[in-house]
Amino acid sequence: MASGNEEGALWSIMGYLLSGLLIWGGLGWAADHWLGTHFFVLIGMLLGGGASMYLVWLRFGRGSTGSNPK
């Protein structure tokens, strides 16, 4: 159980980071495209990266007793 859980955690961490970057970076890119600016994509990517890392922390890093019994 433990090893499967750990591998699953790693893959889902990657999924979270990727989707965070893609969603918010994509929104920033769309905003850039629409407004003709160049910095929204960077802001979006930083925001998305930060948010997804926060999500990873919520899911996997919270509390040392943690590793909620899935």
Binding site: Y16, L18, S19, L22, I23, W24, L47, A51, S52
Partner: peptide
């Protein structure tokens, strides 16, 4: 507002 799109995208698109 920040997290829900990410979760939705993870479960329904990225996975």
């Amino acid at each position: 507002i920040l997290l829900t799109p990410i979760e939705l995208a993870t479960f329904f698109v990225v996975r």
